[in-house]
Structure formats: structure tokens, C-alpha cells
């Protein structure tokens, strides 16, 4: 039970913190009345916006960074010198692949060189990480309703991804029911309802603040009664470092997985602009909701989303879809080769 030592430490620390805060608070009234704080907000004419002053030298650096990989591509076969390795490192880090993967790639380049050219060596190494089975599960056991559960932090595009996937399934000739399980964010259900109308899916929703589990439960009941092919269930965005919020999610998943429902996919929606925190998001959601796949959104911007390389390597969660545009059909199955090529094109 090493756990206990840690626990004791945490308890002690928490107590110290609170005790000090309390002591300070108690001391406060006794302290002489402080002079009134300076008003933070000075009432004055808003000053003219100063000229653009980015950090000196940065602009040139950024400009120089473009086309770095072109230079790498130009590198020949054989051993690499430190400058060349530096270029590879820059490309990988800039695409959010993360230090661990980058270090590994560099170590292998250092050891083995690049007999067939640097570009193809790096490409092969990254591709070898994408070997997880990524088939989609659309069918449940007979008599049960398949459910796709969408989880993720706030603002990654869960609701929009559901809409796009609903369209995709409808295009395939399936009937879809949407469950507005985000009962927390203001107007989240309205947003989903607007999409339901646009895509021609059914929707089950409840008032704001309702129990998300009950919404999902009702949706599955309705889907079963009407013979709907698949239920797509939205959940509220939640930060991954709160045990309570993750517990709530685990509960929603349990409810959705109970007869007559069956969760066949739990899709973690990730924003491609997210950096290394995505790894911790994936880890926490995997533990709480048994994530089976990733939907990587916003790849149509300037972000590369390289962190999914690390996620698939470390946690074995496959990317299943990528969002490449605003249109309702712009969510497409993940293609590792195209993805790696775009990473290296940074």
C-alpha cells in the first residue's frame, strides 16, 4: 500500500495549505486597514493602438522555418550530420509530434542512417506507429441498439462531428438518432437540433441541466422502439483533470451500454490545434470511458495534429476520422499515409 503514503502526503499538504490560508485570513482583519487599492482601470482616453511589434528576429525565423522539410527531403541517403538531424527535429516538433517520438526517430536515424533517403526513413518510422486496427463498429449484438458515444474537452467540435457523422451514415442509407447528452453548455442542444434538422436525423433532447444519462437512456429507448439503426450520443465537454466530471462520463457510458443499448464506439474528439495536452486528455478519457477511436478535427487549418502519433504509439487508440473542412461532408476516414505526408510537409 504505497498508495497510503502518497495519500497521507497529499492530506498533509492539503491541510497545510488550508491551515496557512486560514491563519492568514484570521490575521487579515487585525492588519491595519490597507490604503484603498489603486483602481485597476483608469478612466482615460483609450490610447491609439501601437504599431505591430513582434519579438525581433522571430518573423525571419518563422519564415525560414517554412520549407524546412523541403531541405530535409533534399538530403541524400547515408549518415546524417547534426545539422541535418536538427532539421528533422524541427519538422517533427513543429507538427506537435512531441519530444518522445521525435527523440526516438532521431535516435534511430543516428544509429541506422537513412539508406533510402531521410524523407522516406522518417515517413516509414512514423507510419509504423499507425498499425492499430481502425475498422469502424456499426453493428451491435442482435436485439440491441448500437451507440456511438462522443467524448472530449470543451470546444473541440464534438457536436459538429456528430452532425457530420450523422450525414455520413445517412448517406450510407442508415437511420440515425441523435442524443443531446450535453445538458451543461448553454444552447448545446439547440446546436445539435439545428444539425438534426439539416441532416434529417431524429433527436432526443431534454432541458438544460437534465441528467445526461437519462437523455441517452431515452434516446436508446426511442431508437429501439422505432427501429433506428444507430444512436449518436453527444456529451458535455469536460476537462480531463476532474475526477467528478470523468465519473459522470463513466456513468453516461454505463447507461448507454445497458440493454437495449450497446456502445460500439466511444470516439474521443480531439482538436488538431491541441499540443501535448492531448496525450493527457486521451489517457484520462481512455480510463474513464474506454475510448475506442479518435476523431481529429480542424485539420483544415494550419495545425498538423501530430500529437495523435504519440497517442497511437503510447495508448494504442486509433484515429478513425479526420475533419478537413467546414462542410457537412468534410469528415473523412483517416488515411495514415496522407496524414504523415501532411505532417512532414510542415
Amino acid at each position: 500500500m504505497t498508495a497510503l503514503y502518497v495519500l497521507v502526503a497529499v492530506v498533509v499538504v492539503a491541510l497545510v495549505v488550508v491551515a496557512v490560508v486560514r491563519a492568514r485570513r484570521r490575521a487579515r482583519p487585525a492588519a491595519p486597514a490597507a490604503p484603498p487599492p489603486l483602481p485597476e482601470v483608469l478612466v482615460a482616453e483609450a490610447t491609439a493602438i501601437p504599431a505591430l511589434v513582434p519579438e525581433p528576429g522571430l518573423a525571419e525565423r518563422l519564415a525560414a522555418s517554412r520549407g524546412v522539410f523541403d531541405r530535409v527531403r533534399g538530403l541524400g541517403a547515408g549518415r546524417l550530420d547534426e545539422d541535418q538531424l536538427g532539421l528533422v527535429e524541427e519538422v517533427l516538433l513543429r507538427s506537435d509530434v512531441g519530444l518522445a517520438t521525435t527523440t526516438e526517430v532521431l535516435a534511430r536515424l543516428r544509429a541506422d542512417g537513412a539508406p533510402e533517403g531521410v524523407a522516406s526513413a522518417v515517413r516509414d518510422m512514423l507510419l509504423s506507429g499507425f498499425d492499430t486496427e481502425r475498422a469502424l463498429h456499426e453493428a451491435a449484438e442482435s436485439g440491441r441498439v448500437p451507440v456511438w458515444l462522443f467524448v472530449g474537452v470543451n470546444g473541440v467540435g464534438k457536436t459538429t462531428s456528430i452532425a457530420k457523422l450523422a450525414q455520413r451514415l445517412i448517406d450510407e442509407g442508415k437511420s440515425v438518432l441523435l442524443a443531446a447528452g450535453d445538458t451543461f453548455r448553454a444552447a448545446a442542444a439547440d446546436q445539435l437540433e439545428a444539425w438534426a434538422t439539416r441532416t434529417g436525423s431524429e433527436i432526443v433532447r431534454a432541458a438544460e441541466g437534465a441528467d445526461p444519462g437519462s437523455v441517452v437512456h431515452d434516446a436508446i429507448g426511442r431508437a429501439k422502439a422505432r427501429g433506428v439503426d444507430i444512436v449518436l450520443a453527444d456529451t458535455a465537454g469536460r476537462r480531463p483533470n476532474s475526477a467528478n466530471l470523468l465519473d459522470e462520463l463513466a456513468k453516461v457510458r454505463r447507461v448507454a451500454d445497458r440493454e437495449p443499448g450497446q456502445v460500439v464506439e466511444t470516439l474521443l474528439v480531439l482538436d488538431a490545434t491541441t499540443g501535448q495536452n492531448a496525450l493527457s486528455q486521451a489517457r484520462e478519457f481512455l480510463a474513464a470511458a474506454a475510448v475506442t477511436g479518435i476523431v481529429l478535427t480542424k485539420l483544415d487549418g494550419t495545425a498538423r495534429g501530430g500529437v495523435v502519433v504519440a497517442i497511437e504509439r503510447e495508448l494504442g487508440i486509433p484515429v478513425k476520422f479526420v475533419g478537413v473542412g467546414e462542410g457537412v461532408r468534410d469528415l473523412v476516414p483517416f488515411d495514415p499515409e496522407a496524414f504523415v505526408d501532411s505532417l512532414l510537409g510542415a
Binding site: T273, T274, G275, N277, T302, A303, R304
Partner: peptide, 14 residues
């Protein structure tokens, strides 16, 4: 967003 990765620079610049 505080969790933004390397893209923060490109976005902010644009």
C-alpha cells in the same frame, strides 16, 4: 486555448 500546440504562433500571427 491554453492547450494549443505549436500552431499558436501561426494563428496568432495571422
Amino acid at each position: 486555448d491554453a492547450a494549443t500546440g505549436q500552431d499558436a504562433v501561426v494563428t496568432a500571427r495571422a
